[in-house]
Design a protein around this nucleic acid. Structure first.
Lengths: 211, 211
DNA sequence: TAGATTGTTAATCGATTAACAATC
DNA sequence: TAGATTGTTAATCGATTAACAATC
């Protein structure tokens, strides 16, 4: 069996969000070109992505929204929900705790970690903050497989290795630091400095020419 | 003349960061394979990227770090520095103000905007917070070309259009919302929900199999 | 049926990787 | 010279786009 391309996974996530909004608006079916229009993709791409997760439409009625949401959920989500850890309760860490507290039924941040004694022991945006010394025990105890890394760049590699030792196999890394980890570990980098540099560069190149 | 691929731009940003660190550590030259090792790229890729910005090495001595940093800077940066706006001073907005206050000499957030009267008029992480009503005047007055968008999803499209009207041509969008803007506008999406869903999915697929 | 949409296959495109001659 | 590295070209790979037969 083949692997779904990474881009397909990203688009499926986006489709689901759009479908939930459409459902909330009272719609019950969509055509590929509707979803393409909303997501900025093409109709053919949408059909290919939906086929990937086993969704089938019908030339007369399009795709049933409830079916799409269910199939995408079966494909993307862990059925029992995914417990997640957040490491580093600085400004960005707290913002992400707040952001993810609301956003997702299946992805739940169940533990935060910091080494600042003014933060540990408290509940921040609904999430208990533990001392870094407990990170491996708690990750094992709570069967955490995925972590958000919001520590300073110079601490990132060391913390990441600890997490992997404790059993984490996916990291969403906000530290502007390349992580060297075994190949079977998934690292997704959210490098905001690079993203901003790229945006500024492309804006200057394609933009309105204002200097 | 041809355009540098987007991936090359991202890698150049990363190389520069690594080169600055190497320089601070006392190094004065690198080989392509050193930079490849540090960045997780390949030596051939590094050489191609560096050629793209007009850097040349020498089989005996490799590349001069000072030269690389300078050439990458000439390529990526606006010589006068790039003034940037941040729209939406919520948890995430404040975290980004803090993050970017320190990180970059050429990219500077010079104005923040919100419509909450408890935030406007104050200075937050060194940046003045203006009322949203002033956004177009200030963007024009300060010649701002690039904006960070950290407003709620349902406000993102409206705000983005206002910004584009005022002359912004590059947006770094943190709202989980697809923006529909003219083609000459650069939009870079930092979709954290999708990134986390993708990380969790790939972790489950490639990970240690723990359920 | 007629017409729009789905599902599938072939063509294109862009970027990465591999190969190798040129260079110090 | 010998050997490692650079610069450049060709081969590969993956994903997107285009084309079209099958379907309701």
């Amino acid at each position: 069996m083949h692997q779904a391309p990474h881009k397909t996974i990203e688009r499926l996530s986006m489709y689901r969000r759009l479908l939930n909004a459409a459902k909330a608006g009272g719609q019950s079916s969509v055509y590929s070109h509707n979803l393409a229009e909303m997501s900025g993709s093409t109709a053919a791409q949408v059909r290919r992505d939906l086929m990937e997760v086993g969704c089938h439409g019908n030339p007369k009625t399009g795709y049933a929204i409830d079916d799409l949401i269910e199939q995408i959920g079966l494909f993307l989500d862990h059925p029992a929900g995914e417990p997640i850890a957040l490491i580093g309760v600085g400004n960005l860490g707290r913002a992400l705790l707040h952001f993810f507290a609301a956003h997702h039924p299946k992805l739940k941040i169940v533990a935060a970690f910091d080494d600042d004694p003014f933060k540990t022991g408290r509940v921040i945006h609904g999430c208990h903050c533990y001392d870094m010394g407990e990170v491996q025990n708690i990750i094992k105890a709570k069967h955490i497989n995925v972590a958000l890394l919001t520590v300073p760049a110079d601490a990132a590699q060391g913390v990441a290795e600890k997490l992997v030792d404790a059993g984490v196999s996916g990291l969403l890394n906000f530290a502007p630091q390349r992580l060297r980890l075994p190949n079977h570990i998934t690292v997704e980098d959210m490098d905001m400095t690079t993203a901003l540099e790229k945006t500024a560069f492309l804006a200057r190149q394609n933009g309105n020419g204002r200097q």
